[in-house]
Design a protein around this nucleic acid. Structure first.
Lengths: 195, 195
DNA sequence: TCTTTTCTGGACTATTCGGTCCACAAACCA
DNA sequence: TGGTTTGTGGACCGAATAGTCCAGAAAAGA
């Protein structure tokens, strides 16, 4: 019936995720958004809504990929050995460290950034963040259940590991040397040795 | 020789700390600063400098009190029993939880906020943050040394506990229920039971 | 008291902000 | 092809931004 959109909404959203991930909500302007997407304001507004809506969609998109990927480290359905299962925990707590080590990339975790910058002041952000944290917590818990089924400490241990994940994100962003981050990670994984 | 300042610089700085602590750097405007201090722009500029300088002084002030207080949990000189010493670790990891529990205060930790919002983009902030983290790490390490002298794991354990501290700060800001935070804290303190 | 010096707070500025609007372009249908 | 409809991008807007500046106030020394 009429003219069709000239850009792929998902491609644009990916670019916007990177932008908000880098700069946060407050420090990102429409000038930035127009530059990194190559679109005019009219297109951005008609496709996504205002700045807040854009941020929320970007955050949701991030959670659906990155937080999901973290949770999926533990929830793969195929059978695995115990050593493969403990390895998942190494990978999980290595997520905050790996980008720093291989690319000096300290942008951290969009979810963590949103929790600190926006969650206390914006209900929508808080809801998305809490939901994503739940996803990660459940993933870690599932991983623990496979490793030591029925252990009553699994819930608390999952809580602690997710907290440690975010703590490593903060420490990494602060500029802590990789070696220190690895020490913290390995010490947090000590409990695996008892298995 | 001349007119003297009408306000107490320390009082004003305390008010500014609270403001930046609450809202972060980007979201705080001069209108906010003038309102919470009751001062005009001229006074603020002549006493503290521009917005960035104001933020840095506020952050330094915070670190000199709060981060120092956290480190001092472990470094008191008087003799203490083992149970008093383990209690220090409970208090330390309870710092992120206590304000949420007693006052529904989710503003978190200024140091943590600064690490996430500003440290990657501003060298001065990064320096202050890393220094404050060092202080806390050293405090925790000292506490561990008193509890289990010469243990080669003390360094890594201190690193992990500081990371967990920041992780709890993030989880608290995200809106995680107090009970979950306490589970994570207690699980992180499991190592004390072996003593 | 008068002069000097600094403090004070608001008027002022140039710029940038998020958001609206519209003239035009492009695609589809008849 | 002509008409309708929607996408496009930039001109435009009022508000808010960080920062400057200055007229007057206040304090201290002479």
């Amino acid at each position: 019936m009429a003219r069709q959109r000239e850009f792929d909404k998902d491609d644009i959203l990916r670019a916007i995720v990177r932008l908000f991930w880098d700069k946060g909500y407050e420090a990102t302007s429409y000038a930035d958004l127009m530059e990194t997407t190559g679109l005019g304001k009219g297109s951005l507004y008609s496709a996504f809504g205002d700045k807040r809506a854009l941020y929320l969609q970007a955050l949701r998109s991030y959670c659906e990929t990155e937080a999901k990927a973290a949770a999926d480290l533990f929830s793969e359905s195929k059978e695995r050995s115990t050593s493969e299962r403990t390895e998942s925990f190494h990978i999980f707590l290595g997520l905050p460290i790996e980008p720093v080590e291989t690319a000096r990339d300290r942008r951290g975790c969009f979810l963590c950034n949103a929790a600190v910058e926006q969650a206390p002041q914006n209900e929508d952000v808080q809801e998305i963040v809490l939901q994503a944290i739940d996803l990660m917590r459940q993933g870690v818990f599932d991983g623990l259940e496979k490793l030591r089924p029925g252990n009553p400490k699994n819930r608390a241990r999952a809580e602690q590991l997710v907290s440690l994940y975010f703590g490593l994100r903060v420490m990494a962003k602060a500029g802590t040397p990789v070696n220190s981050l690895k020490e913290a990670r390995d010490e947090g994984l000590q409990f695996l040795i008892e298995l």
